[in-house]
Amino acid sequence: MIVNLVMIVKNEERCLEKCLSAAAPFVDNIVIADSGSTDGTIEIAKKFGAHVYDFPWVNDFSEARNFALGHSERDHGGEIHLILDADEYLKNDEESNPKALRDFIDMMYDRQGMRWLGLIKREDSYPNGDEIDRSITQIQRILPAGMRYKGSIHEQINAKVVNKMSPLYAEHDGYLQEGKGQRNLEYLIEALKKEPNYPYYNYQMAITLRNLKREEESLPYFRTFFRFSGKKEIRQAPYWTDGIMRYLYTLYDMGTEESLEEAGDIMGKVQYDFTRNPDFFFYSGLFYMKLVLKNTEKYQHLLPYIEKSYLKCLSLGEVERPEGVIGTGSFKAAYNLGTWYEVSGQKEKALHYYKQAAEQGYKKAEERIKVL
């Protein structure tokens, strides 16, 4: 089968060469829709033999994606499309490699014909205080011919078909760059005018505002996202898990007793959806600590739940989940457990868990070991 890389770009000279260098061995052709680059993007693309088409921008990402997909199929025989953004870089190793991709495509074709979608794992890097955190998300990025997108912003595939995890793994550094949040905000405002209660758009608006440090403004969108996400197919979507966790962290960051009470209410309503998710229990440890510090007399009975939460994280480990922060089932939980034991005067236990975190390469744990 002919496998084509299909992209939309604009002014991506910072990262496009790295992206195409990594992706070229996986595909037969590279098809790019350029929406008005004024830097070296097009020259970089053509170095890799890319077929570049001009796309007059119409404030609609789906239109651009579908334009490129159409050219891939009509002009370059595309039977399978691999979709990447310019700031995403495929890994090529024992598990994620060109042969593994072809074997996966053949298997899915034998089982499902052309009615399926392939997921890839993407590792996102993003700033968190003085650290760079990493999270894993599963996203639809392998499309048989005929599949098309819908939605003007944060576009999705317009098809109800089997979704299957592929062997592909990509790294993403876009969240380390500035500027896209404000741009996306304008598109999301227009999208929400058309579908004000659509959970996915409310989720995207909420996290965009949160990333812009506009937490108070994000809350109405988080609440609407949560209120209209009762359907089973929504709660099973990867973005629902991420939306709940970001909603909870926004309430945590605001840090008022009222916001923490709202967080506690949400936790009670979703707890059965997160019984195997270390991210939820990691948050719980932070939540109980902040609640106790906010009003010790009222909440001191919750102190044991801090320790229990982090121990639960470690017992679950880094389990497979649609969205998740790397370390909540391992080194981050061990480190936080170490700090809990340190402040409660249990030095030996603190050292035990600091060492556990340090053995997994967590620098903050190494620093605490030196101090103790």
Score class of each variant (00 low, 15 high):
149 Y>T: 10
339 T>G: 00
7 M>P: 14
176 L>I: 15
43 E>G: 03
25 P>L: 03
328 T>S: 12
253 D>Y: 11
328 T>V: 03
147 M>F: 05
103 D>V: 03
177 Q>I: 08
246 R>D: 07
178 E>W: 02
50 A>W: 04
291 L>K: 15
351 L>W: 10
313 C>S: 11
272 Y>D: 15
284 S>A: 15
28 D>V: 05
248 L>R: 07
293 L>C: 01
293 L>P: 00
317 G>M: 06
226 F>K: 01
254 M>V: 15
355 K>L: 05
140 Q>D: 08
295 N>T: 07
252 Y>V: 14
4 N>T: 03
259 S>L: 00
154 H>V: 02
350 A>F: 07
245 M>R: 13
241 T>H: 12
290 K>T: 04
325 V>G: 01
231 K>L: 14
54 D>K: 13
346 Q>W: 00
117 L>N: 07
280 F>H: 05
275 T>P: 00
221 Y>D: 11
163 N>M: 06
126 Y>W: 13
227 R>V: 00
238 P>E: 07
189 I>E: 15
344 S>K: 14
56 P>E: 13
261 E>K: 15
123 E>F: 11
106 D>C: 00
111 R>A: 14
293 L>R: 09
11 N>M: 03
180 K>T: 09
353 Y>W: 15
120 I>P: 05
199 P>N: 11
31 V>P: 04
123 E>I: 08
370 K>A: 14
202 N>V: 01
334 A>I: 06
261 E>R: 14
185 L>G: 04
184 N>E: 04
238 P>W: 03
327 G>D: 11
21 S>N: 13
325 V>I: 10
232 K>N: 12
205 M>L: 05
339 T>D: 13
338 G>P: 02
148 R>M: 01
130 D>G: 06
299 Y>F: 14
39 D>H: 13
309 S>R: 03
256 T>Y: 09
8 I>C: 10
55 F>K: 13
112 Q>S: 12
131 E>P: 00
348 E>K: 07
63 E>C: 07
316 L>D: 14
312 K>G: 04
104 F>K: 02
353 Y>C: 07
245 M>S: 09
220 P>F: 02
329 G>T: 02
289 M>E: 15
248 L>C: 06
199 P>V: 08
189 I>M: 01
46 K>W: 01
370 K>Y: 01
293 L>Q: 13
349 K>T: 01
368 R>L: 06
331 F>R: 11
264 G>C: 08
41 T>Y: 03
17 E>H: 07
198 Y>W: 14
300 Q>I: 12
230 G>T: 12
